[in-house]
Every structure is written in structure tokens, then in C-alpha cells.
Design a protein around this nucleic acid. Structure first.
Lengths: 356, 356
DNA sequence: CTGAAAGCGCTAACAC
DNA sequence: GTGTTAGCGCTTTCAG
């Protein structure tokens, strides 16, 4: 059974193909009698006609597709949520999403961009798995938006998580619970992700606003990919003499927070009674399954994916052309934060102190 | 800067567009002199010509795209790996992957299939997130392959995990370590996934081959989505009187295995010394992070995605047309299996017993 | 109010 | 060996 073409509909309705096209595309301007309109629609339904997008695309120069090239689409659930957001928005606007993941191979990336351009995608999204600054690749069409990364030359719309606001919310949560000695369990990489610097900045700012000068020993690091590294770093924190030992830890990610749990448990410390912990990422499998469930900051991947697709399709204006849009990272309150233990009382009174 | 067309190359090389087409598509048959070939290629490179895929698609009726419709692409890392496999295979064959996820909404699914057909995809992959049997949706092209699901009317190629072989490997691992009292921590759902029945079958068969009749009390269930449910089910197992209490558990998934760890720990039981555990799924965040790391059976999502794309593109023959291809589930050996505790010795001798 | 005709950019018969 | 021509299926002036 061959595909049914517009000429089949025309024949069935006893009109020309142009009339069919006009009717089916609801072109006002061309006044077609209500009667023929009905006849055409009926005929189209009867023969089961749907337009060939390729032919239409060739004619109109719009394909109703949007290309998404990303470095690593697999492995992490985050990627999936960005995709889902972009894909949902695309669908709502009658567009299809063409996906390429490049494994960060520049040759593959170049080919992918070219293939997508050759396929006449109406817009493009350039995504990375981790928030970072990228060189703008060659050949990207004007209608490109950057997702979870920022082009070094800020010429195109971009959306990234608002790491600073997220970090502030995390530290404030701890402060509000009464903690004064708050550690920052950072990620340790030769080329630290931009999230690290931004969250650290948030940490320092919020503590400063509370009149706290953090003890340098409170800044520890783990490799970020294993809970074990978080455990080791936490051990270093808990080895501090009592008056310097933190009562709360803000962790770069949930996996290292899981390690903090292990370290605490091995010393007979209860979370949150003896040690409060806040993570980052809201990785369901980790944060939700920890005992007690982890309070953490969520990365807004779905929302960012949506935003990118909507901007790419012109359905939403990027607020500031040169600045990346900062998507809020909501705090997810669970059960890993409480007031500090009585054994390590906070200084009396509501006034900030300046103890290092 | 407008796109460069084939006529631009033709003009630059001083030949006709057909010659350019012939050369660039390496059409043998038409004998073009080596000299003009070189001139054409040179001209194409100079003006930076790449063919417009839409125009070519209209003419050739092949778009070099493959459509992938799936119920839930997001949330789980598994989905990502299927996608990655399909996408890698597509790319290797010069094809682009067009992705739609339907959230299992039949209306969306119908629209998606139609949109993909209208876009003239060369082939289609119909994927589900969990191994299941599906009604064949309307409108799927002949070149469709089912991924991680089996059409009720087995008319098209399909690939699913070899759950039975995976289950057998899991139980054999435990048997080989010397266990005789092996529990099956099943998933409890109104409409149990096909994996449940298949793995249970494997469990019974392997035990039967070893001459073991499982105690009905060894078959427990949890909701499958939380570690807590695994913990509760394991508690029921550990509450059994010593001579009936299992020394090993085969868990439907890694998350419930994590719950088994919790249950054991709360009774002061060491894993694997006091209780051996094998999971299923090889969910990195869970299996790899548990203490000790969990021995489990991996779901071959990447490989299945690859297989589906290769079959869809005709690059690989589906072995049996009416049977789904069973993709092996490799066992991932980590540290959660050892011989049973001396306190609960296995019956002496190598002979199987038949104690219920 | 509707139909005829042109053309999107390419490939593939068929001439020359 | 290479150029001419005719569409692929659709939309869109422009006539009538």
C-alpha cells in the first residue's frame, strides 16, 4: 500500500491539489467556500492523508525538526531529563527532536552538526552533561541555544543551573538550623567544574553574611565520583578537635554525601542529630534511598531542556542576550538536617560571631 | 550567507549538476574522467558544498533517519543506554536518530508514529523501558523493530534481555558458593513484569537441577521501587527459624538488594559472611556503591539498542523471525557472595538433598 | 472562489 | 564521458 498523496485527496474531493493544500493548511486569505472545505477534509480523512513532511520541508524550507547534539547522553539520569524536557517542548510545538551524542569527540561533533544542518533542522541545541564553558563549535546555525553550558563568546542564548543560588540555599538551610561550623566538601579535579567554584563562592558569601569566617580545615575534597571519596574527606573533618569539628557538611554532590553518611555511621554518629548533611544533584537513587533521606539541591535538568527547546523555537525570549539564563535549583528538604548537637552548642544569642 | 547548492558546484567546476551528483555519490557505471572527478571534488571543497538531505530524501525516498519511539526515555539510566546504543549504531551507518518519548500516552504514541512516518524515516524502533509484551501499535512501518519488548503477535524482529539465562547465572553463582537455602526476593505488582516470571522460572529450574525443593517461605516480595520494601521482605526471611532461614538471597533488582543490606546490618549480620546477596540490573549508583559492592546481573541495554538499530537498518539479520532475540545478561561479580556461614552448615557431602 | 503552473534541490534515465 | 530533462510531493503566486 503506497503512501497516499495530496493528489489522491484532490481526486477524491473533485478539486485541485492547491485547493486541498489551502484547506488543510487553514490558509486564510484564500477564500474557499465552507462547502468545499468540508468536502476536502472529509476526503482527506477517508483516504487517510497526512502530508509528506520531506516534500513540504523542501518547499517551505522548514522541517519542523530540532537538532540536539550533546556530549554524553547515556550513563546519567540527568541527561535523560534534559532530553525529556527538550523533547516535550518540541512535541508541544509540533516539532521532532533529532538526537546526536558525540561522546565529546570533536570529529563526531563536527560531522553531527553538519548532518543536522544538511537535514535542515529549524533550530539546534548544543548540550553538555556537566555545566561548563565551551568553545563555540563551527557550523552551528544562528538558531542555536546552549544547554547546560555557556559559550566562551557569549553570542547565543544559553541556560545553566543557578549554582550560586543553589549553594546559598544549601548553606542557609544549615545556618537556619543553628549550625555555625559548616564544612564544604568540594570536588577535587585537575580541571574543576564551574559548579565547584560557584557553589564555593555561595558558601563563602553566605557564611560571611552570617559573620562567620570558615576554618580553612573545613574545606575538604573528594574525587566526586565515589561515595568512598566522600567518606575519606568526611573522616578528615571528623578527626578535627571538638571545638573545630564541623556540625554540618555541604557536599558537592549526593554521592559524596552518601560517603559522609558512611563515615558518620562508622563513628557511631547519627544523622542528622550529630551531623547535618546537605547534598547537591538530587540523584533519586542516592538522595532518596539514604537513611535518613538526604536534604539536597536539585539540578533543574528537565526545566533547562524545556527552556532550551522553547527558546530555540522562538516560543520564548531569552531575557538577556549575552548572559546565560540561570535556572533555579530548588532545595529538596528531607531528613538530614537538624539543629547541631547540644554537646557542641552554638555560641549563645542570635548575634553572629566571628570565631574562625 | 545562503546555503551552497549543487548548481554552485557545477558552475565552479564548469560541468552540469548531474555530473556533480554522479561524482559526489561515487556512482560507478557512469564513467566520468578522472580529471573532471578531481575538478568537481575540488570545487565542492572550495565552495563548501554538502548536499541538502531534504531534497535528496524527496528524490531518493530515503532519508537516512531512523525513528525511535519509546514510552519513558527519561528518569532511568537504562533508557539512556538503549538510546546510546541505537544512536551509535545509527551514526556508524550514516543515519540520524529521531527520538520521541510518549510517556505511554496512546494518543501521543499514535501522533508520534504518524509524524515519524510523515518524515519518511527509513526504519523505526519501538522501545519500552521495561521488558514487556505490547500490542502492536497501528501504523508502524514494516521496517520496525521492537526494543526491550515483544509484540503480542510476533510479526516483527524484537530484542529483549535473556532473563532466564540471567536468573540462572545468579542462582548458580550462589549454588557454586555452597548455598542450599536460597531465597527469591520477587517484585510485588498487580501486573507483574515479565522479568519476574522469567527469573522465578530460572530460580526454580536451577534449584531443581541441584535437587533442591525451595521452601515456599523463601519466596518473598517487595514493591521493587524502594530499598525499604527490600528490607521488609528480607526481615521476613531472617525471622524464619534458623534451620529454614536462607543463607543467600537472589533479588529482583539492585534497589531491593540495597534493602536486604539494611535488614542484615540492623541484625548485626555481615554481608557476605552471614548472608550472600545477588541483585539484578547492575544499577551503577546502587550496586557499585553498596558496601560491600553488590554482585549482580547486568541488563544489556546498550547492546540491545545497538542490535535494534542494526536490524532496523538491515545491517544484521534477526536470527529467528518469530522469536525475540535474547540478549545475554552478564553476571557482574563483586563482593556480596561467599560461602554460607559455618553456623548454618550446608548438609554434608556433595549430594543434593531434598529438604523443603 | 478555484485551478494552472512554477519551483524547493536533488538524482536518475536517457540523449548526445 | 557529459549534459538535458523529468520528476520526488508539496506550497504558493498568479490567472481566471
Amino acid at each position: 500500500m503506497a503512501r497516499v498523496r495530496i493528489s489522491d485527496v484532490a481526486a477524491a474531493a473533485g478539486v485541485s491539489t492547491s485547493t486541498v493544500s489551502l484547506v488543510l493548511n487553514d490558509r486564510t486569505g484564500a477564500r474557499i467556500s465552507e462547502e468545499t472545505r468540508a468536502r476536502v477534509r472529509e476526503a482527506a480523512a477517508v483516504v487517510g492523508y497526512t502530508p509528506n513532511s520531506i516534500a513540504r520541508g523542501l518547499r517551505t524550507q522548514r522541517t519542523r525538526t530540532i537538532g540536539l547534539v550533546s556530549d554524553v547522553i547515556a550513563t546519567t539520569p540527568f541527561a535523560g531529563r534534559m532530553l525529556a524536557g527538550a523533547q516535550d517542548a518540541a512535541r508541544e510545538h509540533g516539532h521532532l527532536l533529532i538526537l546526536v551524542n558525540t561522546d565529546a569527540d570533536p570529529a563526531v561533533e563536527r560531522d553531527a552538526i553538519r548532518a543536522l544542518v544538511d537535514h535542515q533542522v529549524d533550530a539546534m541545541i548544543f548540550a553538555t552533561m556537566w555545566h561548563r564553558v565551551v568553545e563555540t563549535p563551527e557550523g552551528l546555525p544562528d538558531r542555536t541555544v546552549f544547554l547546560d553550558c555557556r559559550p566562551a563568546d557569549g553570542t547565543r542564548p544559553a541556560v545553566v543551573p543557578d549554582e550560586v543560588a543553589g549553594g546559598r540555599a544549601a548553606v542557609r538551610e544549615l545556618l537556619a538550623a543553628g549550625h555555625r561550623r559548616i564544612a564544604w566538601l568540594d570536588i577535587d579535579e585537575p580541571d574543576p567544574p564551574v559548579a565547584s567554584g560557584l557553589r564555593h563562592q555561595a558558601y563563602r558569601e553566605v557564611l560571611a553574611e552570617a559573620g562567620i569566617t570558615p576554618d580553612p580545615a573545613w574545606h575538604v575534597r573528594g574525587d566526586g565520583t565515589t561515595a568512598a571519596s566522600g567518606r575519606a574527606a568526611t573522616d578528615r573533618l571528623l578527626d578535627l578537635p571538638p571545638h573545630r569539628r564541623p556540625t554540618a557538611i555541604f557536599c558537592f554532590n549526593d554521592r559524596m554525601a552518601a560517603g559522609a553518611y558512611v563515615a558518620a555511621r562508622h563513628r557511631g554518629l547519627e544523622i542528622p542529630a550529630d551531623l547535618s548533611v546537605v547534598g547537591y544533584d538530587d540523584q533519586q537513587l542516592v538522595a532518596g534511598e539514604l537513611d535518613p533521606p538526604l536534604t539536597t539541591i536539585a539540578l533543574p535538568h528537565y526545566e533547562m531542556g524545556r527552556w532550551a527547546a522553547e527558546v530555540a523555537l522562538g516560543a520564548r525570549e531569552p531575557p538577556e542576550p549575552d548572559q546565560p539564563y540561570l535556572m533555579p535549583c530548588p532545595i529538596i528538604r528531607r531528613d538530614s538536617v537538624s539543629s547541631p548537637p547540644a554537646a557542641a552548642p552554638t555560641p549563645a544569642g542570635g548575634e553572629p560571631d566571628t570565631t574562625p
